[in-house]
Design a protein around this nucleic acid. Sequence first.
DNA 1: TCGTTAACCTGACGGCGTCAAGGTGAGATC
DNA 2: GATCTCACCTTGACGCCGTCAGGTTAACGA
Lengths: 227, 227
Amino acid sequence: MTTRRVRARRGEGPLLREEILRAAEDLLAESGTEDALTLRAVALRAGVSTPSVYLHFADKEALVEAVCLRVWDELGRLFTENLGGGDPFLALGRCARAYARFALDHPVQYRVLMMRPSAAPGVPPAAAECFRHMVNAVAACVETRVFEGDPEEVALGLWSAVHGCVSLLIAQPGFPWPRDREALINQIVRMAGFGTALYSRLPATIPPSRELAADLDAFGARLARER
Amino acid sequence: MTTRRVRARRGEGPLLREEILRAAEDLLAESGTEDALTLRAVALRAGVSTPSVYLHFADKEALVEAVCLRVWDELGRLFTENLGGGDPFLALGRCARAYARFALDHPVQYRVLMMRPSAAPGVPPAAAECFRHMVNAVAACVETRVFEGDPEEVALGLWSAVHGCVSLLIAQPGFPWPRDREALINQIVRMAGFGTALYSRLPATIPPSRELAADLDAFGARLARER
DNA sequence: TCGTTAACCTGACGGCGTCAAGGTGAGATC
DNA sequence: GATCTCACCTTGACGCCGTCAGGTTAACGA
């Protein structure tokens, strides 16, 4: 759309904000990289002059951030969906998988918001809500004693693990990744969940590898036998 | 240094490459962000005209990458140091901690190389060597049976966990991080290590949270009693 | 001394984010 | 219906950026 936009009527100025966001969103979807989001390109697409963008966004950074933030509402929905009920440990796992799937479904937006030096101090507002959800879910796991310690710290650890996996998948597609991404995510989520549950219970000095392996074998076998 | 560089003698053209890298390195260290690495600024600092940079680097991307790659030799050294000997599981832990420390010591370089869409396909050469080291270390752990499965896949999982933690620390300083970074790293490393060791041994369906917690308690207690 | 050529420079191009200033037309006012 | 007003948007420019085509300079071999 290079046709000139008709001027909004009085009191309807903010409409332009929405149209600019739409234009930027489309541009991002088509190009697949945020480099395509130049103010000129966005303004042209919205049928408006370049500096008009400044009527609704402080600078380019604010525009890009706003564009990428739009999809994060979806993530909030995913969290509340998956944290619904049932066993809190399983709920947390579902939640982590949903997070990973979300990130891989929106790689550009995820990169912009999570893998760049954030201009504003503090947590990105959208991520803050998700984090709050997650801390609650972890707290529920602490309640059932599957986790121990400060829910915030534990949540940060779990978040780190999942974020690490998806961010590497996004930024380093050249790594020797296994075919099945879903399986990899599952591996990470289980690793993080069980690892968190286990490590706080271990004595300060752990046995040598071979003995630890045998002990873990026994534990796994016993767990399998019991049910 | 804005003084003009004296022209290199015949056959000593490549010297300029080194001086440009030095200038860029200094600029990066002083500013703390790769945005300061403009070709003009680097060239000025090196006492040379802007297009002269192109005599030794294909484009800006190549220059920035070369600058950031310089510190990765150090990481290779750290790996071989820490993977030296002793229990392979412990060695892997030392290695992961060294990796994290390295990343936090060189946040800009780490971000540029690991948290951006890599232009070149395949693993960044410097990271590839580290990865090879890590796969070997994991293979040693598979040897002692503390880990199971394909060493490459397992290594990717461990790498993901540590990378996730440090990349979040670097890109999201506003998160409610605990005071003690070292402790956080330790938590992540232990989580990843023990989680990887444990999860492959568990039955397909795991017990509900409270029972799992009790089982893990018992396991931890038994392990503590045994030594 | 002179020609060759490696080493480097000049000047320019198009594109970028950003800003100061000006236009313009829809709706209120008379 | 004419006029005024000001919310909405444009024009034109600035300085910076990466990049390139072509020219200049000086170290060396003959």
